[in-house]
Design a protein around this nucleic acid. Structure first.
Lengths: 233, 233
DNA sequence: GTATATTTGTGTTTTAGAACATAGTTCTAT
DNA sequence: ATAGAACTATGTTCTAAAACACAAATATAC
């Protein structure tokens, strides 16, 4: 992970959640230590086995957190949207990363040294509680994900992923097209299926008038139906 | 969750991790608020959708945390061993429980009101960091579990579960028999497979001299082999 | 201690989804 | 602008594991 270009950005507005909790002194220290780094589309932000050093906050762009599984088959564990924090779990657990992070598209990331964050939160219970909440929510999602990915069928898993993408990145101006440009392979590794199955099931959804496709752009036509398919499994 | 019998137990030795971090005043408050509750074998400790109220520390016995999935098919999410904390995630996330907890066998559980824990940790960064670490480790395990359960085959998943049970609950005096008495159905829902498949694969392992079975007692004969099967998937 | 329910074990059938093959299409880099 | 690479699409085959069925063995309740 190489340091990129440094920017002048208003941290107070971009790091809102954490900023609000800090004392004035802490803010000043943080302002001097935080670095803004750019990543190009498909650029790796960190790798499995890397030693975690920074708390990252995604300012702009989209990031995937993924893991290579049995036989190198990779799986997307979660996707990050602007203003979300990531990359801190492994440091807190005193582990190296067990996941990797890659930019789906051009990204701006704020990097804050983890030692600083740990020092702050050991003396600031409210900041600590902020992280406890983040981790608790994510752990709940992970537990739910285990059941969804192992028990739902292909259609249910894909429907769920489409809804999750809509939830994370929203819709374009037409109020229907999911605001992300994703390869079928990524959609597959997010839904735990082969690329063929993602393509096939996507066409089925098109035939059933649940969605419409234009290249990589996916338009949700019948969201209710999608919810139902996701729920039924 | 009904209150059971109250015991006199030396909290300072049983709640070691948290106890060590607290101040004297906090310890006194905790001593007055903590309650010891017994659960019989197969008794429910909390249910999905319940509102979380207590941090629980398992003193003696064995507990399973599970989740009912698609079509009521239940899945064991994690198993708790003595001296482990559980039941706190949902409270921190401001959610109701998304899992349920049941005693595998007769249990003693220490219950501490979560409001108290939250008050303590907001003023005690080290206690807060203790929970941050617990959550971070569990989140890492959950991420790994997603990949293991979705990508490994039946043999790999069962081998992994057997090793996890040994890791959690240890071996009996013979240094080979896993120290837990588990129905095939539980073994299946821990390994994400049908009961038939758990039984069948277990017999295969017996035929291959990897394990030996005596009713529900499982003796590990060739642990190296088990590790290899788990790794290969 | 006996009856009933639950768990275990095994064989057979069925099926969802992986694996493979191949062709057309769209990116991307020079 | 064009060559090569990567992605998308679709048909076919194959297989792991679920579903089902039933018998035998245990456990649990009365």
């Amino acid at each position: 992970m190489a340091a990129k270009k440094k920017d002048v950005i208003d941290l107070s507005s971009s790091l809102l959640d954490i900023w609000r909790i800090l004392t004035d002194t802490e803010r000043e220290v943080l302002r001097r230590s935080a670095r803004i780094v750019h990543f190009k589309k498909n650029e790796l932000i960190y790798l499995e086995e890397d030693t975690p050093k920074f708390l990252m906050c995604l300012f702009t762009g989209k990031v995937k957190i993924f893991k290579s599984g049995v036989g190198g088959r990779s799986q997307i564990i979660r996707i990050i949207r602007p203003m979300q924090y990531f990359g801190y779990r492994a440091y807190f657990a005193r582990e190296n990363y067990v996941t990797a992070a890659m930019a789906f598209e051009s990204c701006t990331v704020c990097m804050i040294p983890m030692e600083l964050i740990e020092k702050f939160l050991r003396g600031n219970g409210n900041l600590a509680f902020f992280f406890i909440q983040l981790l608790s929510v994510d752990l709940g999602i992970a537990d739910q994900r285990v059941v969804n990915l192992t028990q739902k069928h292909v259609r249910g898993r894909l429907a769920e992923s489409l809804l999750a993408l809509k939830e994370s990145y929203g819709l374009e101006e037409d109020g229907a097209t999911i605001n992300i440009y994703l390869a079928r392979e990524d959609l597959a590794s997010l839904s735990n299926m082969t690329t063929s199955n993602a393509i096939r099931t996507l066409s089925n959804f098109v035939n059933e008038r649940i969605i419409a496709i234009d290249g990589r752009k996916i338009k949700i036509i019948d969201e209710e139906r999608l919810h139902k398919i996701s729920r039924m499994g």
